[in-house]
Amino acid sequence: MIRDITIGQYYDVPSVIHRLDPRVKLMGVLIYIVALFLIRNPVLYIVPLVVTIVLYAAAKVPASYFFKGLRGIILLLLFTFVFRMLYTPGDVIASFWIFNITSQGVVKAIQMTARIALMITGAALISYTSTPKALADGLEKAFSCFQRIGIPVHDMAIIVMIAFRFIPIMFEELNLLMDAQAARGAKFSEGNILQKCKGVITLLLPLFMMSVNRSSDLAMAMEARGYSGSHEVSRMYPLRYRTADYVSYVLLALYLAAFIFIRVFL
């Protein structure tokens, strides 16, 4: 199961969205999510839905790739839906055993589920269309003002990068370990809670040791290549705004303004 997580993996095709500056995309996600939370009338979810579909089409991310990624969160969505439906007080429209389904509950359930689904699909687009490096650079630039008050933004960007690089390797190691332990007779999906915990610990300990070794190796490799963490660095592809980026900012501002307007005046 761990092996087929695709959500958040860069999908390499040339597209308008891919070419946008990562700072624009970060701001876009922020505005998109804020707008989702401004919605009160469920009919309005149509707007972000259409926007999302248009953006995915523009980014040339195929639906199959996207749905494969979505599989992981289906359970979460289902849980939200059922929970909201059963636990919202109001006018009862149906009831069985100890549960009451209320009309308010159904509306709430649709609303919450739609919000979460839209939020995750919208936010996932940024990771499909920007490389981890671009995202780290974008975050670094966007928050560079905090560097002056002593927050190590540059170091944090490097940490993000390294995490992106090593998470897949750690999954690989985890899989290897699981296979190795299974070959010695370990059964991870059987037994009581205690036995399961023991199983997890036999996995986590070696994984932890491997990571410690890796980090000292990595520190050395970085130092050998001139990383000191303190002096000025440059970029192979420095972030530079282009016309499309400015246009996008304007569109984003209009989008946010529209939702604020609806919320306040309608």
């Binding site: 490096k133 690089r165 390797i169 190796d217 990595l218 490799a221 290549r225 660095v233 592809y237």
Partner: peptide, 28 residues
């Protein structure tokens, strides 16, 4: 070094090669 996975820092091939020159503040 011996273990290739522990010396590759970039998330793409070219980024990884660029890591050293970037640290030297070389022109893009």
């Amino acid at each position: 070094f011996q273990n290739p996975d522990n010396q590759i820092i970039g998330t793409s091939v070219e980024e990884d090669v660029a890591f050293g020159p970037e640290n030297k503040n070389m022109e893009s």
